[in-house]
Computed example of a mutant assay.
Amino acid sequence: MGLTALDLGLRGAASGVFLMMVLVLSRLRPLNKHVLLGLAMSAGGAAFAIATAPFIPKSSLWWTMPILSAQPVVIWLWAHITFDDDFVPAPWHGAFWLATVGIGFVVSLTWTSFPAAAHRGANLLAAIAVGLMLAAAVQMVRTWRADLVTQRRRLRTAALVINFVFVVLIAGSSLAPEPITGVGISGSLAIAGGLFMLAMLGGFGLFSAQMTAAARDATAVIAPPDAVGEAAAVTSDAADRASIAPALLRRLEKLMTVERVYRQEGLSIGRLAALLDLPEYRLREAINEGLGYRNFNAFLNSYRIEDAKTALSDQSQRDVPILTIAMDAGFQSIGPFNRAFKAATGMTPTEFRRDAQATDAESEADRIAQSRHGFG
Rank of each mutant, 00 (worst) to 15 (best):
P91L: 13
V258N: 11
G104N: 11
S186E: 09
P115A: 01
E362L: 14
M197C: 08
P72L: 04
F299V: 10
A215K: 00
T112G: 04
I322P: 07
M197L: 15
E178L: 12
N301C: 08
A239H: 04
S186C: 01
K58A: 05
G193P: 06
A231N: 11
W92N: 02
A135P: 10
W78Y: 01
S60T: 14
M65D: 12
A218Y: 06
V138G: 06
K342T: 15
Q71C: 00
P30T: 10
R353P: 10
E289C: 04
Y293M: 02
G270K: 06
M1N: 14
I103A: 03
T212M: 04
L300G: 09
S42W: 03
I170S: 13
I222A: 13
F55A: 14
L23A: 13
L278T: 07
L312Q: 05
A171R: 05
A344F: 06
A274W: 06
A231L: 15
A308C: 11
A5K: 09
P179G: 15
N163P: 07
G102R: 00
A146F: 00
S69C: 09
F337T: 03
P179C: 02
T143H: 11
S313R: 13
I222Y: 12
S42E: 08
W62V: 15
V141T: 10
V88S: 11
G205R: 08
H34V: 00
Q332T: 15
V149M: 06
G44Y: 08
S371E: 15
V138S: 07
A223P: 08
S313H: 02
S333V: 02
F83T: 05
P177G: 05
R27V: 05
T345P: 04
F296M: 06
S188N: 12
R339A: 12
R284N: 07
L267C: 08
L283R: 14
L132E: 00
A126N: 05
L61R: 04
H119F: 12
I305T: 14
M256T: 08
R318V: 11
T324K: 09
P66A: 09
I180D: 08
P89V: 04
A247D: 13
